[in-house]
């Protein structure tokens, strides 16, 4: 059913593209390309109706089903509140609190009472710094490892050992090295981000088809040209995938790291609200952290689509 509607709209477009310049030289295809330049045949009214109906059905489904899930969760939640755990805030109460918190995000009432916007900005700044530093170190290192067998041998075992370690295990080392919480949190994010970046970049370099290397060899591109014209563009999709992965993990890790380091930041804010037994705030924080996570991922996804030559 779907395939049918798809074919009706997609086929003529595909034809114009592939026949464009060959049309004049190849008579057998002439007939087809002429058909392609003619105005698109309109689907029969019956089919059009059906396509329309299917489209509305799809929209309803993608909207209604998540709403249904949401309703079930809210219902369970209020049941829990009234019958099982009364210390848990009611949905309505949380909603009111959320409105208060979210409508005044940049409130600044002294060092210990800042709005959620400030908290998020501080967390994001740490993630950005750690992520950026990791990219500066990890991507070149990944290139070297992908290009040179010796580099691969030298670094691979170390990375294999360190990669499965929770980045939070590095926090004490950071505190010891930097004697301050902010750089330590950035350090933890740096560690979080660097492994996927190195590994993806190296994998990307190694996955470059021999064909491209042959072209570079025949043209005798020098090292710099090779990196700029072939290695880098061919590897870019892998690099961006590595960046996307590490940013996702970094956003999870920063919350935990800030709970430990204190100060200002969404993680510590959440922990502080728990100490004040302000459970509504925690629920709001969870929602906000999730939302920011989605935005970060969408941004990276957008970048991925822009830079990946396969998707352009």
């Amino acid at each position: 059913m779907n395939a049918q509607t798809l074919m009706l709209t997609a086929m003529p477009v595909g034809h114009t593209e592939s026949c464009g310049t060959e049309a004049q030289t190849i008579p057998p295809r002439e007939t087809r390309s002429v058909a392609a330049t003619r105005p698109k045949p309109r689907p029969a009214p019956l089919l059009r109706d059906r396509a329309k109906r299917e489209k509305t059905a799809l929209i309803l489904k993608t909207l209604l089903l998540p709403l249904l899930t949401f309703a079930v969760i809210v219902a369970t939640w209020s049941y829990l509140h009234t019958h099982v755990a009364p210390e848990f805030p009611a949905p309505s109460e949380t909603w009111e609190h959320a409105k208060a918190v979210l409508t005044d995000p940049f409130r600044d009432a002294g060092p210990n009472d800042k709005g959620i916007g400030w908290q998020l900005l501080h967390s994001l700044a740490r993630v950005g710094a750690g992520f950026g530093l990791a990219a500066l170190v990890g991507i070149p290192l990944g290139f070297l490892m992908g290009m040179s067998r010796n580099m691969q041998h030298a670094f691979s075992p170390l990375i294999q050992i360190l990669k499965p370690v929770s980045p939070l295990a590095w926090l004490p080392i950071g505190l010891l090295l930097f004697k301050a919480v902010d750089p330590s949190a950035i350090f933890v994010i740096f560690i979080t981000c660097i492994w996927p970046m190195i590994i993806n970049t190296a994998t990307g370099v190694k996955a470059i088809p021999q064909d491209y290397m042959n072209v570079a060899a025949v043209l005798k591109l020098d090292k710099l040209e090779l990196v700029r014209r072939v290695l880098f563009p061919a590897t870019l999709p892998y690099v961006v995938t590595g960046m996307r992965l590490s940013l996702g993990i970094a956003w999870m890790v920063i919350v935990a790291a800030e709970m430990l380091t204190g100060g200002i930041g969404i993680g510590f804010w959440l922990w502080d609200e728990w100490n004040n037994l302000n459970v509504s705030s925690i629920i709001v924080a969870i929602g906000v952290i999730g939302g920011v996570g989605i935005v970060l991922d969408l941004m990276m996804g957008f970048m991925q689509n822009r830079l990946d030559y396969n998707k352009r």
């Binding site: 064909d211 042959n214 072209v215 025949v218 043209l219 014209r229 072939v230 061919a234 396969n310």
Partner: peptide, 16 residues
């Protein structure tokens, strides 16, 4: 290899 021996590859090998 070198550019004095140009190759038309079996699988075209254009950089995408």
């Amino acid at each position: 290899p070198g550019p004095n021996r140009a190759v038309v590859f079996q699988n075209h090998s254009l950089l995408p």
